[in-house]
């Protein structure tokens, strides 16, 4: 074990405490401010009120933005699930020239800054496709989000496939199953939880994305992060944005909980 003096232990403990305070106090402030009666976020809070929660739940723009976020997230996740799984199978089951380049290509959309991805697609949509009469409209966002979500599905499915034994599939084929039967009844169940985990991560990534969305959303369409950003940009940001942020914080616990559960399910099985 690492032998540290009492002073060093206390020093390290202090650093950890400061980091945790730095991580959680700001989030707590947002949650508390959602109950602040004042119009502008301020500290200390003088009067508590549920006014902003009521306003947020009654707000038509928030509902529309939430719906857009969910639709875009589901669309992007569906595309990412198909493409990510296909690439995972290609890279896991085959060796070919340019394999390295393909795996780099999948990571690239999240390795490059979002502003570059956003501006590049915006340029294609507006300067190349629009002049020849193609309006991507709403699908522009889905195409953009799907592009950087592929890696999430790929990573999960690829890691799982690496641990699967090919014997089971061989047995299935020997017993006369068609390739589709083998995939549906033997292969898929074995990587299903990784597939679902990848899908959840892809959805969460899409739901949270701001910068790429700014450049690819059609005029007048807000996703939830875009709505939040527009609220924050106003000089007197109304406190409803704190309510939405609080709900996002609560919902962010879901993927963590789900991935923990999926992880445990796998742990139990082995």
């Amino acid at each position: 074990m690492l032998r540290l003096s009492r002073g060093a232990r206390i020093g390290l403990g202090t650093i950890v405490t400061v980091v945790l305070v730095f991580m959680y106090v700001p989030l707590l402030l947002v949650v508390l401010n959602s109950f602040n009666a004042a119009r502008i976020a301020s500290w200390p809070i003088r009067d508590f009120s549920l006014e902003w929660w009521g306003k947020a739940f009654a707000s038509e723009p928030i509902r529309a933005a939430l719906l857009n976020s969910v639709l875009v997230g589901l669309g992007a996740t569906a595309v990412a699930l198909v493409l990510g799984t296909l690439v995972a199978f290609a890279l896991q089951r085959h060796s070919f020239f340019g394999k390295q380049s393909v795996s780099l290509l999948i990571v690239l959309p999240i390795a490059l800054p979002g502003v570059v991805t956003g501006v590049a697609l915006n340029n294609t949509y507006n300067q190349l496709l629009e002049p020849i009469g193609i309006q991507v409209g709403y699908f522009g966002m889905i195409i953009a989000h799907a592009t950087f979500c592929i890696v999430m599905v790929f990573n999960n499915v690829f890691a799982r496939l690496r641990r699967l034994s090919p014997n089971v599939e061989e047995a299935s084929r020997d017993l006369g199953a068609t390739p589709w039967q083998t995939f549906r009844l033997v292969t898929f169940p074995q990587f299903r939880s990784a597939f679902i985990a990848g899908g959840i991560l892809a959805f969460a990534l899409s739901f949270d994305e701001v910068v790429v969305t700014i450049f690819t959303a059609p005029a007048g369409v807000d996703t939830l992060p875009l709505w939040m950003m527009n609220q924050m940009a106003r000089p007197n940001e109304a406190s409803t944005v704190n309510v939405v942020a609080t709900i996002v914080i609560l919902f962010s616990l879901l993927p963590v909980w789900a991935s923990q559960r999926l992880g445990r399910e796998i742990g139990d099985r082995n």
Partner: peptide, 13 residues
């Protein structure tokens, strides 16, 4: 997972 804009809002507050 707490949300990119949520964290920026949190630092702003």
């Amino acid at each position: 997972w707490a949300g990119y804009l949520v964290k920026i809002l949190a630092m702003r507050v």
